[in-house]
Lab assay of single mutants.
Amino acid sequence: EQIEAIAKFDYMGRSPRELSFKKGASLLLYHRASEDWWEGRHNGVDGLIPHQYIVVQD
């Protein structure tokens, strides 16, 4: 089940696996990879999304 999230802040990925996005961006989350990271998608690209930078939608 995919979960929708909105970016709270701009984020610049620090490795090829991390996604970069702007504040207000819509993100799709697949699952929680760790306490700090989600596996997800932004603009058709899959990668890691930092939990602290997003708001998960109910």
Rank of each mutant, 00 (worst) to 15 (best):
L27C: 08
K22T: 10
E35F: 14
Q52A: 13
L48Q: 13
H42E: 07
P16N: 05
N43H: 13
N43T: 05
F21W: 00
P50W: 03
I49F: 02
Q57V: 12
L28S: 12
D36Y: 10
G24Y: 05
Q52K: 10
D10I: 02
A33K: 05
E35C: 14
R41T: 13
E18G: 04
N43F: 15
I6T: 08
K8N: 15
K8L: 12
Y53Q: 15
Q57F: 09
R32S: 04
P16M: 04
W37Q: 03
S20W: 04
E4P: 03
G47W: 00
H42K: 05
H42A: 12
V56H: 04
P16V: 07
S34Y: 03
K8I: 08
V55N: 10
R14H: 03
Y53A: 14
M12K: 05
L48Y: 07
F21E: 01
K23T: 13
I6Q: 13
L28N: 04
G13A: 13
P16D: 07
V55K: 07
R14S: 15
I54P: 01
D36M: 12
I6L: 06
I49M: 03
F21N: 00
F21K: 00
V55I: 08
G13Q: 12
R41C: 14
L27M: 14
H31V: 11
D10G: 07
S15A: 09
D46R: 15
L27K: 01
Y30P: 01
L29M: 05
A5M: 01
D36K: 06
A25H: 12
D46A: 15
V45M: 06
G24M: 04
A7G: 11
P50A: 06
G24Q: 05
G24F: 06
G44W: 04
R14F: 10
I54T: 06
I3T: 04
R17H: 08
Y11I: 02
Q52T: 12
G40V: 00
Q57S: 11
Q2M: 13
A5D: 01
I6V: 13
Q2A: 09
R17Y: 12
L48E: 04
A7T: 08
R14E: 15
S20M: 03
Y30R: 09
H31Y: 07
W38C: 02
W38F: 03
A7P: 00
